[in-house]
Each structure stands twice: as structure tokens, then as C-alpha cells.
């Protein structure tokens, strides 16, 4: 018991222990603990574990070296392993094990893999300033949903619902959660509108652009060939798209992101425009 306590008080073994504990927390912990509280979780990607472990190692090194005494005790076993006479077997073993491990890691990195290369896909790439909708030029920035200013909202929503259930439901699902019947066949998965990271972050004109131009209309960083979203301008009218956009927000319970008032408007606000709202630089994908 006392030996164990001594062992645990030693900074070197504390560091090793911390390293193991943090590794387990990042891999097993994140994977299995949240489900105990009915929160969804999944394995953490290797790249993120690597990043976390780097931070953890920096933290541990700072911990052992921020106090002179602790730092000296920490180095003791390392020093002993390198010079002590009675540890020559351990030394020899390390001399073999370290190159073998490094060699194995190199092999793992370099061996041919059948996996597709990792692609970095920007979920919400920057929209173009202007698009051509069926031959008609449309200025996207500052564009509001025209239907919100005319006609009965209930009608627009009914129309939007009809359009959604005729065209979108197969992929985006009955609950707007991106889990439609065909969803499992796609990578990337269809957008989940009930998540606060999708339409809740975007202006209606952005959503209009995404619906109208679909996957092929994505800029390069959106890796257009990945997205299965059709070009809906070929099938739906302008009003239909606007109404389905309105329906999405209404049904998912989000408010569309508003446009910031331009500096001129802030100085002399006109009655027609909505008051300048505080806003800041992080729409799109808050990353």
C-alpha cells in the first residue's frame, strides 16, 4: 500500500498515468460515457485524438516542469535508465523496442491503403454574390424572402409543405432531420435542418441558393461531386423554392439569420428596413 502511494506520488509515474487516463478519456470516455446519460456519441476520429493527445502531452510536460523539485524527480528515472548499471537490460530492451515501434509506425503510415484520400469538405462555403436563376440575374446579398412580404403566410407554408413532401422528404426525412429513406445511401448525409448548425446559421437567400443550384452549384471547396442534392431550379419555380425555404424554418422552429444593416443604413435608418441588429463575423459554419 505504501509502495503504491510512493509510486503515485512520483511525478514520472503521475505523468505516465495522466497520459494513459487522458488517452482513455478521449477514446473510450467520449465514446461510451455520454450514452450512459442518453446523449448520442460516436468514436472520435483519429485526427482529433492525435490533436487532443498533443495538447495533453504539452499540459503534462508543463505540469512536471513548472516546479523545480518536481522536474528533477521527474527526470530521475529517465536518467537512471540511461546510466544505471543494474538497468542495462531495460536499456537494451528500450534500444530495441523504440526503433521497432518507430519502424512499425512508419510502416503503418506508408503501407498502401485502399481507403479513399481524406477530403476536406466545407459544409457552408461562401455563396456567390449573384446567381442566375433560370436566366434571371439575382443579387444574393441582402436578399430577403419575397413571400414574407406578400400574400397569406398560411398559404405559403401550405405550399412549402406540399413542395417538401413531394420532393425533399425522401432524403431529408419526415422530421427534417436528414434521415429520410434514402439518406443512409449518401455520404455526405443529407442536411439535418433540426440541427442548430444548418439553416439556423444561414440567411434565407443562402438556403435558396443551395436549393436552386444543388450539389453541382457548389464551389470547389464544397467538393460539388460529393453532394447528391439536385439542381432544383430545373424542377421548381422561384416561388416554390421560397415557400419551401419558409416551410423549413417554420417547421424546424428556427429563425432565418438576418442581414446586417450596411454602414450607410445604420447612420440614417429608413423606416422600411428593419432596425440594425448586432451581428458579428461568424455565420456560415461556426468552426
Amino acid at each position: 500500500m505504501t509502495r503504491l502511494r510512493l509510486f503515485l506520488r512520483h511525478p514520472f509515474w503521475q505523468a505516465v498515468l495522466l497520459l494513459v487516463v487522458s488517452y482513455l478519456a478521449f477514446t473510450v470516455g467520449v465514446r461510451y460515457v455520454p450514452p450512459l446519460f442518453r446523449v448520442a456519441s460516436a468514436p472520435v476520429p483519429g485526427s482529433v485524438v492525435l490533436q487532443y493527445m498533443f495538447i495533453a502531452i504539452v499540459g503534462i510536460l508543463i505540469f512536471v516542469s513548472s516546479d523545480e523539485l518536481r522536474w528533477r524527480t521527474f527526470k530521475q528515472p529517465l536518467h537512471a535508465t540511461l546510466v544505471d548499471q543494474d538497468k542495462r537490460w531495460l536499456r537494451g530492451g528500450l534500444l530495441v523496442a523504440v526503433p521497432v515501434l518507430l519502424g512499425f509506425a512508419t510502416y503503418q503510415q506508408a503501407r498502401p491503403k485502399v481507403e479513399a484520400p481524406i477530403q476536406l469538405r466545407s459544409i457552408h462555403p461562401a455563396p456567390p454574390g449573384q446567381i442566375t436563376f433560370r436566366g434571371k440575374a439575382m443579387q444574393l446579398s441582402g436578399l430577403e424572402n419575397p413571400l414574407r412580404k406578400s400574400g397569406s403566410m398560411a398559404d405559403h407554408l401550405r405550399e412549402g409543405k406540399r413542395v417538401y413532401y413531394q420532393n425533399c422528404i425522401a432524403c431529408h426525412g419526415d422530421r427534417l432531420d436528414g434521415a429520410g429513406h434514402y439518406a443512409h445511401g449518401f455520404s455526405p448525409a443529407p442536411a439535418n435542418f433540426s440541427d442548430n448548425g444548418t439553416i439556423a446559421q444561414l440567411t434565407e437567400s443562402y438556403v435558396f441558393w443551395r436549393v436552386a443550384k444543388g450539389g453541382p452549384g457548389l464551389p470547389r471547396e464544397g467538393t460539388p461531386w460529393n453532394s447528391a442534392m439536385p439542381v432544383w431550379e430545373n424542377y421548381l419555380t422561384e416561388d416554390e423554392i421560397w415557400s419551401v425555404v419558409m416551410f423549413l424554418y417554420d417547421q424546424a422552429g428556427w429563425q432565418p439569420r438576418r442581414w446586417e444593416a450596411s454602414p450607410e443604413e445604420r447612420k440614417n435608418p429608413t423606416g422600411a428596413k428593419q432596425p440594425a441588429a448586432p451581428n458579428a463575423p461568424k455565420a456560415g459554419g461556426a468552426k
Binding site: 456519441s41 460516436a42 472520435v44 476520429p45 483519429g46 482529433v48 490533436q51 455520404s187 455526405p188 448525409a189
Partner: peptide
């Protein structure tokens, strides 16, 4: 430093159900 959209292999993407981790997602936003 937790990214919102994670770098992941295909298998990892499938098990996460997209490029966003269902749990760490919380740390990814502003």
C-alpha cells in the same frame, strides 16, 4: 481547438453519421 467539421476517414465519417461528431459537435460551435 476542437474542429466542427472533422478530418476523418470514410469509416469514421460513417460511424459519426457525417463530418460532425454527435457529441463533440457541442465544442465545435462559436
Amino acid at each position: 481547438s476542437t474542429p466542427h467539421t472533422m478530418i476523418a476517414t470514410r469509416d469514421e465519417l460513417v460511424s459519426m453519421g457525417g463530418a460532425h461528431h454527435p457529441f463533440l459537435n457541442v465544442l465545435g460551435v462559436m
